Amino acid sequence: MIDHFALGWITPILSFLLSCAGCAVGLTCTARARTSHGLASTVWLGIGAVSIGGTGIWVMHFVAMLGFHVRGTETRYDVLLTIASGLIAIVVVGLGLFIIRAAGVGPLALLAGGTVTGLGVAVMHYLGMRAVHVGVEITYAPVTVILSVAIAVVAATAGLWLSAKVQTIGAGIAATLIMGIAVSGMHYTGMAAMQAEVVRGTIVTPDVGVSVAALLGPLIIGVTVSTILLVLVVGLAPSAEESEAQEKFRDWQARQEEIQRETAEPRHRSQLL
């Protein structure tokens, strides 16, 4: 028997809050990317991809997985596949964000970006599940798998649209909650597709991977450090409104300098005559 809430409500609640936190920081980064240019805009989109893909999606997935348990077995994790799933989440979110920046938020761009990101998130989820070893065969219900992939694509499309449109604090809070619910919904739909044989008697221990306890310490340290760094970067950098004001001021300065040059040229010519 599969239990997705072996630790009670702490894993779904904590994973949802972490997802919301990552999405909130990511939306803040994409807002600043819209008011920046050149390398600065690219850097902000990259940080947004790490925030949304890393914390908002992958960390949510892993924390929720801590509540996963198959009765009569011990759960172990393949470290390389677990890390690979996290990198995939960051890369596909980054691809989606850059597609939207390059092509805008038209229907075709949203469809392309949402499809790429959604399918990538689904790959991340099922690769992360492939990294889990419980010593018994795990199978998946095809219809539920397809439903989870569809949810991932729809959620990714909505997330990319929100990343390009959110401007006010109220809209940002609403967008954060929507994205957190969507990510959690995709995860638990995918988990609902899992099926495992019932084990009776002695506990089955897989002969590959590391235990949850061995993986949990480095994960907590990594997530804590990266989250603090992301918050510091976002908190210390100028806000989207401040960046926009700075850009307008620089444009105004450039126009004033151009006017001064245009005014000075006739005076210089008259003096020569």
Rank of each mutant, 00 (worst) to 15 (best):
E137Y: 04
T82V: 08
V145F: 02
H187W: 05
S270L: 15
I47H: 00
A40I: 04
E257W: 06
G201E: 08
L160P: 06
R250E: 12
S41R: 09
A152W: 04
I2A: 07
G201K: 09
G118M: 06
G56E: 04
A182Q: 05
G113Y: 00
W58G: 10
A214Y: 03
G46S: 09
T11I: 05
S239G: 14
V79G: 02
L216W: 01
I203H: 06
V79Y: 04
A84W: 02
G72I: 00
A171M: 13
I259C: 10
Q260Y: 11
T30S: 15
A155F: 01
I146D: 11
G54H: 01
I259T: 11
A21Q: 07
I57S: 03
G26Y: 05
F62D: 00
V136W: 02
M129S: 09
T202Y: 09
W161N: 13
T263K: 12
S36I: 02
T205V: 15
Y188C: 11
M65T: 05
R76P: 02
P238D: 08
L119V: 15
V121F: 09
M179E: 11
A171K: 14
T117L: 07
H133A: 15
P218S: 13
M191N: 10
L272H: 11
S239M: 00
G128N: 07
T224Q: 10
Y126L: 12
Q195S: 13
A102V: 02
A131R: 00
P238I: 01
Y140R: 13
T205E: 12
V132Y: 01
S19I: 07
G38C: 02
M179A: 14
E258D: 13
T202L: 12
H268T: 13
M60H: 05
G46V: 02
I228C: 14
H4V: 10
V166N: 08
S184F: 07
H133M: 11
T11F: 03
A89F: 00
G113W: 02
L81T: 03
L236K: 14
F16H: 12
I138P: 00
G190V: 03
S211V: 00
M179N: 10
I259L: 15
R101E: 07
G38R: 00
E265S: 12
E242V: 11
I90V: 14
A174N: 02
W252G: 13
A196C: 10
E258L: 13
V198R: 13
T227P: 07
T35N: 12
R261M: 12
I100L: 08
